[in-house]
Each structure stands twice: as structure tokens, then as C-alpha cells.
């Protein structure tokens, strides 16, 4: 038992490559070989051009806060001791928008547009979560 009491992601053939990357502390995304679009969430087709051939790239881990929400209530007992906490959408330099948490700063200091970099939380032997911290 891990003692980790928050929800864990569901792994399936679409999502597993991303989470396997996370385990190695890499943010992996598909890039379309047809049009160059960075595909997220991962898929069997490119939503821009419907090409099926892709390559995997590793993102730099840097981005900006596109938007965020500050939770003052816990909808799940695992988050009770975290409130208030920030859920954010980070726009990565490579393009994808990633739902995540902003950590290592006061919730009132989070702003749209602020520069952030990935920090990894190894929550189980299989799952590492990409969270973000101000630069």
C-alpha cells in the first residue's frame, strides 16, 4: 500500500504512453508528421489534419499559467488538508494546455501569464504527477 489517498489516473491504450513518460519525469506528446501539430490529448489521429503518423517528443517542461482556479472546498477527502489549493491550466512552450497544480508558492501569488516549470511528484511506484512551480 502506498498510503496515497487521492484519485489516480486511469491508464488505457490512449493515456499510457503519457503516464509512462511521467514515470521517467518526461512530458511526452505526439507530434503529427503530417502537419507538425503537437497533439494533446494523445490520439490515433491528428485533430488538425487527420494524419495518423506521429512521433513522440519530450516537452521542455516550461510554460505559462493560462488560467487557474483556487479551491476553498474539498470535493474529495484526499484534498482536505490541501485547501486552499490552485488548479491551473499551464500552456506549455510546445503548445499543449495541461491541467495541473501550481505549488511552492502562496495561492494569492498565482497570476495568469506567470512563468512556471514542471516539478515531479512521485505518488506511487507507477505514477508521477507533473505539477508546476513559479520560475
Amino acid at each position: 500500500m502506498t498510503g496515497y489517498d487521492k484519485p489516480l489516473p486511469k491508464l488505457n491504450s490512449d493515456t499510457r504512453p503519457f503516464w509512462e513518460g511521467c514515470k521517467k519525469h518526461e512530458l511526452r506528446f505526439q507530434r503529427c508528421l503530417g502537419c507538425g501539430h503537437v497533439i494533446w490529448p494523445s490520439s490515433i489521429i491528428c485533430p488538425k489534419c487527420h494524419a495518423r503518423d506521429t512521433e513522440w517528443i519530450v516537452a521542455s517542461g516550461h510554460g505559462i499559467v493560462y488560467t487557474y482556479a483556487t479551491y476553498h472546498v474539498a470535493y474529495h477527502p484526499g484534498f482536505l488538508s490541501d485547501i486552499p489549493y490552485v488548479v491551473a491550466i499551464v500552456e506549455l512552450d510546445e503548445g499543449p494546455h495541461l491541467l495541473t497544480n501550481i505549488i511552492n508558492c502562496r495561492v494569492d501569488d498565482v497570476k495568469c501569464g506567470m512563468d512556471v516549470t514542471v516539478v515531479w511528484e512521485d505518488v506511487t511506484p507507477e505514477i508521477s504527477l507533473p505539477k508546476f512551480s513559479p520560475d
Binding site: 487521492k6 484519485p7 489516480l8 489516473p9 486511469k10 493515456t15 488560467t67 487557474y68 482556479a69 483556487t70 479551491y71 474539498a74 470535493y75 474529495h76 484526499g78 484534498f79 490541501d82 489549493y85 488548479v87 491550466i89 491541467l99 495541473t100 497544480n101 495568469c112 504527477l129 505539477k131
Partner: peptide, 19 residues
């Protein structure tokens, strides 16, 4: 899977565009 990061329901969902 949004719940992995503590993101739940419609209030959080609409708080993002509102912000």
C-alpha cells in the same frame, strides 16, 4: 482524470474561464 489534480465538477470548471 481531472480529479487527480483535485479538479472537480462544474464550479471549478467554470472558474477557469471566469479567471
Amino acid at each position: 482524470d481531472d480529479a487527480v489534480f483535485g479538479h472537480f465538477g462544474a464550479t471549478g470548471g467554470y472558474a477557469l474561464p471566469a479567471r
